[in-house]
Amino acid sequence: MFEQLLKTFDTGNGYWNPLVWGFAFLIIFLIIYILRGRGNPSYKRGTEQTKVFLSGNPEYENKELLHVKASNLYWGWVESTKWVINTLKKMHTGRANDYILWFTFMIAIFMLLLGVI
C-alpha cells in the first residue's frame, strides 16, 4: 500500500511525482526560510514609510479609488485581441431564440458532417 502511494504518475510520455517534488520543496523552503530569517524583519509601522508610493501625489481619502477595477485588468491583452472578443460578444445575445438557432445550426452541421444531407 505504502509503495502504491509513492508510485510515480506515468503518463506514458513523461513522469510526475508530486511527493518527491513536494519533499524537495519543503527542504528548499527550510533553507530559504533560514536564509530569509537572517534579514532585517523590522520596519516603522504607521509612518510615512508604509504609505503607498504614488510618485508624490496625495493618496485618496477613499481607498476604494486605489483599487484598480477588474474590468480594467489585462488592458494590453484585450486591446490586441479585440477582434476576437468583439465577435464573441456579439454571439452571446442572451436570447432564447438565438440559443435555439445555434442548436439548429449545430444539428445542421452534424448532418452535413455525418452525411445525412
Binding site: 445575445t93 445555434w102 449545430m106 455525418l114
Partner: peptide, 21 residues
C-alpha cells in the same frame, strides 16, 4: 438521424460550444 439528434441534444445539455450560451 437518431445519432445526430441524440448527440446534438446531449452536447447542448452538456454545454459544449457553440450551444453553451
Amino acid at each position: 438521424l437518431s445519432l445526430i439528434l441524440l448527440l446534438a441534444a446531449l452536447t447542448m445539455k452538456a454545454g459544449i460550444a457553440p450551444m453553451h450560451m
